[in-house]
């Protein structure tokens, strides 16, 4: 039996929050280093791999008759998903080799912040639903 807090949704939100915190690190670093010569802007992508992992437990392309059979799909389970770090070079780098585009970084940071808060709100909602069940709807 899986625990009350061990379903896919909780793991997904937990992972999302983790990645958003790490991404915030990268974005603040980009902003702090916007005048550092030669600094390369970085970003992080995780949406696709999370989405893939979310469906990892569904049956794959090949039919399996045993849980240890390989079903032709090669996706890590949700708990082990890693984010990918990418260079988010601006199309017009400075003459000193710096690739930070401040407007883009600010926009990304606002997005990251909103999505983080949205995830938190979803988590609160989940808790509220559990509480409704526990108190039998009263």
């Amino acid at each position: 039996m899986s625990g009350m807090f061990e379903n896919n949704l909780f793991t997904l939100i937990q992972k999302t929050l983790d990645f958003r915190t790490q991404r915030q690190d990268l974005l603040t670093s980009n902003i702090a280093n916007k005048d550092t010569p030669g600094y390369k802007a970085e970003d992080m992508v995780f949406e696709k791999s999370l989405e893939k992992a979310l469906h990892a437990e569904e049956p794959g392309l090949l039919k399996t008759t045993n849980s240890r059979h390989f079903d032709g799909r090669n996706t890590p389970p949700l708990k082990l998903v890693q984010a990918q770090r990418i260079h988010s070079a601006s199309p017009f780098p400075d003459f000193d080799g710096n690739t930070v585009d401040l407007d883009r970084e600010m926009a990304k940071m606002a997005e990251n912040q909103l999505m983080y808060n949205a995830s938190i709100r979803m988590l609160t909602h989940q808790f509220r639903m559990l509480k409704t069940a526990i108190t039998e709807g009263r």
Binding site: R20, L27, A32, K34, M109, A110, Y116, N117, I120, F127
Partner: peptide, 22 residues
């Protein structure tokens, strides 16, 4: 820009802190 980034992070931390309050 750095103060804006600071406030954004602070806002995120604050919402995490408010988690489960209501």
């Amino acid at each position: 820009a750095n103060t804006a980034a600071f406030n954004a992070t602070k806002n995120m931390a604050q919402s995490a802190l408010d988690l489960g309050r209501n």
